[in-house]
C-alpha cells in the first residue's frame, strides 16, 4: 500500500453524536408519547428532525468526499460489504416476524384448537375453538372481521413492485452504458412506482380499518398482518426515498459508469424489499 493509495480515515466525525442525540430524543419522545406524557410528541418530532439533519449532513459529507475522489477501490469495497451485511441484518429482522407467523400458524393455533399436545388446552380452556386461518383467536379478540383478499390490491401491488424491480435494473443498465436518459427515466419510474405502492398500501389499510373491521387488535391475524406489511411498507418508503435521492444525484450527474456505489446500494435495498414482499404476498395474503 503506497501512501497515495492509503485507506482514507476521516477525522472529526461530528455527525454520529448528532445522530445519537437525535435518536435518543426521538425514541425517548416516542416512549413518553406511548405513556401519554404531555409534550412528548414534540420531543419526538424534534428528535426526528435532528435525525434528518444528521442524515443530510453525514451523507452530504460522504457524497462530497466521493465526488472529490477520496474513495478508491478499498473504500468502495468496504461500503459494499457494509451495505450487504446491513441488508442481511434487515433480513433477520423480518425473519423474526415471519418466524412468529410460522409458529402461530403451524403450532399455537392448532394447539389452541386441541391438536397435538393441545387436547386438554382446548377441552378445559377454549372448548369449541377450531383452527382455521385467519383467526382472531379463541376469544375472538377485536370482534368480527373480514380477511384481506390476495387478488385485489395486493396482486396489483405485487405487479407494481416487480415492475419497479425491473425498471431499477433497466436504469442500472443505462448507468453502466452511460445512457443518462435511460438512467433518469428508469429511476424516476421506479420512484414513482414505489410511492404508488405505498399509497395503495395506505388505501388497503384504510379499507381494512373502515370496511373490514380488520385492525391491529384483530387477534393474531390482525397482529401479524399489520406488523409484517407495516414494517415492509416502512422499508419501501425508506427505499423509495433512497432512490429519490439517487434520482436527484443522477440528475446532478454524480454517477459515472465506474463509480456509483450509492446507486447500487439503493438498488440492492430495493430488491430486498421486493423479495420480502413476495414472501408477504405468499404467506400473509395468499396462503
Amino acid at each position: 500500500m503506497s501512501s497515495e493509495n492509503a485507506y482514507y480515515v476521516p477525522h472529526d466525525a461530528k455527525w454520529p453524536i448528532v445522530g445519537s442525540i437525535g435518536l435518543t430524543l426521538f425514541l425517548g419522545g416516542f416512549a413518553g408519547q406511548l405513556n401519554g406524557t404531555s409534550m412528548a410528541a414534540n420531543v419526538m418530532i424534534i428528535g426526528f428532525l435532528v435525525l434528518v439533519y444528521m442524515m443530510f449532513g453525514w451523507f452530504g459529507d460522504v457524497i462530497n468526499e466521493s465526488e472529490s475522489g477520496t474513495y478508491k477501490k478499498l473504500e468502495d469495497v468496504s461500503f459494499r460489504m457494509g451495505m450487504i451485511w446491513f441488508i442481511f441484518s434487515e433480513v433477520m429482522f423480518f425473519a423474526a416476524f415471519f418466524g412468529a407467523l410460522y409458529y402461530i400458524r403451524v403450532f399455537s393455533v392448532p394447539w389452541l384448537a386441541g391438536e397435538g399436545s393441545g387436547a386438554t388446552t382446548n377441552e378445559f380452556i377454549w372448548s369449541g375453538f377450531e383452527a382455521v386461518w385467519p383467526t382472531n383467536g379463541p376469544a375472538a379478540v377485536g370482534g368480527e372481521y373480514e380477511k384481506m383478499g390476495a387478488w385485489g390490491l395486493p396482486a396489483i401491488n405485487t405487479f407494481i413492485l416487480l415492475t419497479s424491480g425491473a425498471t431499477v435494473t433497466w436504469a442500472h443498465w443505462g448507468l453502466v452504458a452511460n445512457k443518462r436518459k435511460q438512467l433518469i427515466m428508469g429511476l424516476a419510474a421506479t420512484v414513482l412506482l414505489g410511492f404508488i405502492f405505498v399509497g395503495l398500501q395506505a388505501l388497503e389499510y384504510s379499507h381494512g380499518y373502515n370496511e373490514l373491521n380488520l385492525t391491529m387488535g384483530s387477534g393474531i391475524y390482525g397482529s401479524t398482518f399489520y406488523m409484517l406489511t407495516g414494517f415492509h411498507g416502512f422499508h419501501v418508503t425508506v427505499g423509495a426515498i433512497m432512490l429519490l435521492v439517487m434520482l436527484v444525484r443522477s440528475i446532478k450527474g454524480h454517477f459515472t459508469p465506474e463509480n456509483h456505489f450509492a446507486f447500487e446500494a439503493a438498488a440492492w435495498y430495493w430488491h430486498f424489499v421486493d423479495v420480502v414482499w413476495l414472501g408477504l404476498f405468499i404467506f400473509v395474503y395468499w396462503l
Binding site: 393455533v109 376469544a139 379478540v141
Partner: peptide
C-alpha cells in the same frame, strides 16, 4: 440482534397497540 429487535417490538405493540402475539386469547402464545 435484529431478531431481538423484532421480539421486543412485538412486546411493545402487544402492550400499546393491542396486538396479540403473546396472548392465547387472540390466538398467540
Amino acid at each position: 440482534m435484529p431478531v431481538l429487535a423484532g421480539a421486543v417490538t412485538m412486546l411493545l405493540t402487544d402492550r400499546f397497540y393491542d396486538t396479540s402475539f403473546f396472548s392465547a386469547a387472540g390466538g398467540g402464545d
